[in-house]
């Protein structure tokens, strides 16, 4: 199922994009007329490498600014927030999972998760219990081990735990299976989907792996959304 765009309601508590345009330096532009992801919905952003999937995730996460358009997360006009307010909002409402996990070296699994909760504005009394319960739920037994000592599979679980521990509104996963073989890719996707579902979060996953298409509620092919600047 390929969906180019879905009309949205501005009062939605999930994620909504409207008229979002991002210009690349090399003359191309990404244009998303409309996209809505409902709470709990799980969608796949499909497309070839370099097609703009990661850019769209970065726009949703507020780490890249579009030149036009509006992005709402949990009903809040996210782009209207500036500086630290936007960062704190991101920490509280958006969880991110990366292809290479981007866990902080020198920190234990527990500390990686607690750090995300701290930066998301959770009380210090709440951080440990939330982090421990999430790690346990995701099958991390030795949460005090430095992350560099964990297996790749365990590191991925910690990365997922870090993204969902704060019950975010949306979880963004950028090519989480790109470096995995098909069997492990399937397991990883199921892990992420389960964790997002448990957290009650919308899930947006990018991947160029066509075998994942059937695993999501919806699939958005990003190819038609990108064109030369002149064409837009």
């Amino acid at each position: 199922m390929i969906v180019a765009a879905i009309d949205i309601s501005s009062t939605s508590l999930g994620v909504s994009l409207s008229g979002v345009r991002f210009a690349y330096r090399r003359g191309f532009a990404l244009f998303v007329p409309s996209l809505e992801v409902q709470p709990g919905e799980q969608i796949l952003l499909a497309g070839a490498s370099g097609s703009g999937k990661s850019t769209l995730l970065h726009l949703i996460a507020g780490i890249e600014d579009p030149s036009h358009g509006e992005i709402r997360i949990a009903g809040t006009n996210f782009l209207a927030l500036r500086g630290a307010k936007r960062d704190t909002f991101r920490g509280r409402h958006i969880g991110m999972i990366f292809q290479t996990f981007n866990l902080l070296q020198g920190f234990s699994a527990l500390e990686n998760v607690m750090l995300a909760l701290m930066l998301g504005g959770f009380d210090s009394s709440d951080q440990r219990s939330r982090a421990e319960s999430t790690l346990t739920r995701l099958g991390i037994e030795d949460s005090h081990a430095p992350v560099e000592n964990l297996s790749v599979g365990q590191q991925q679980r910690v990365a997922v735990a870090r993204a969902v521990a704060g019950n975010p509104c949306v979880v963004l996963a950028d090519e989480p299976t790109a470096s995995l073989d098909p069997a492990n890719a399937r397991k990883a996707i199921e892990l992420i989907k389960d964790a997002a579902r448990t957290a009650g979060a919308a899930l947006i996953v990018t991947s160029h792996d066509p075998s994942l298409i059937g695993a999501f509620d919806r699939v958005l092919d990003i190819g038609p959304l990108i064109a030369t600047e002149r064409a837009r």
Binding site: I63, G83, D87, R90, N102, L104, L115, A116, L119
Partner: peptide, 16 residues
């Protein structure tokens, strides 16, 4: 820089 980028994504402001 990688560490900073991760901290920023997790919610740390640039000033932080």
């Amino acid at each position: 820089r990688r560490q900073v980028a991760v901290l920023r994504v997790l919610g740390a402001s640039a000033w932080r």
